[in-house]
């Protein structure tokens, strides 16, 4: 396994309301996509051993891969709109379809705000110990990141995979700060910020939350170039 820095060049706005994407879960999702494992990613399905070309920590609890590192530069608001197709209902609706409530219920029309951002340098960085060729092969079919990919957000222009010199704590700790969710007693952490988080994918599985050291670079070390160079 090789120490790697992975860089996604983002071409457009990106929506990351749940924070930075984790490299291990991204690679698992891509492996599932390639194998045609159908969504949705239930905890049972996602917990199944899906091999990815990233090293595990010695205890086998999580992968040696960081969360995404990025700096928001410009924020914008856009809206997610949904309208019931009234024109279709008028023409093709069955006779017993006589009224449609659009101010509530299943046909409710809505306009939800969604915060999107442009990233400094239009990039997201990850660090990991992995097999560069296999990672490259998986990432080559990943063309979008974040939420609302279906409407063009988070478009990835190119992936870059570099071999780099590892530092102390690579790839999950940088200067005493966690680059992913880690056990609070993980070596190298300095005054970690502890919160209820999940240690391994799927990170949305609230039932597995436990007190973990969480990345604080979003507020304290906001310059990815400082980490990258």
């Amino acid at each position: 396994m090789t120490p790697l820095r992975i860089r996604a060049h983002i071409r457009s706005q990106i929506a990351l309301p749940n924070g930075p994407p984790a490299l291990d879960s991204l690679l698992i999702a891509l492996a599932c996509e390639r194998e045609g494992i159908p969504p949705p990613p239930t905890p049972q399905l996602a917990r199944r051993d899906i091999p990815i070309p990233v090293a595990m920590e010695p205890g086998g609890r999580f992968h040696l891969a960081s969360f995404g590192v990025y700096v928001p530069e410009v924020f914008e608001n856009r809206f997610v709109n949904r309208r019931f197709p009234l024109d279709i209902a008028q023409d093709w609706g069955e006779p017993k379809l006589r009224t449609v409530r659009i101010n509530g219920g299943s046909c409710k029309t809505y306009r939800l705000p969604l915060e999107v951002m442009h990233l400094a340098g239009d990039q997201i960085l990850w660090f990991c110990q992995g097999d560069p060729d296999a990672i490259r092969a998986l990432l080559s079919v990943c063309t979008s990141l974040g939420k609302k990919r279906g409407v063009g957000l988070g478009r990835v222009r190119a992936w870059e995979t570099d071999k780099i010199e590892p530092w102390d704590g690579f790839p999950v700790v940088y200067k005493g700060q966690a680059l992913r969710n880690l056990p609070p007693d993980w070596p190298g952490l300095v005054n970690p910020r502890v919160a209820m988080r999940v240690l391994s994918p799927p990170y949305t599985d609230k039932l597995r939350e436990e007190p973990l050291a969480t990345p604080s670079w979003m507020t304290e070390a906001r310059d990815p170039q400082r980490i990258a160079c």
Partner: peptide, 8 residues
């Protein structure tokens, strides 16, 4: 040491 770019 090495950089390779994969155009998507």
């Amino acid at each position: 040491k090495k950089a390779e770019t994969t155009e998507t």
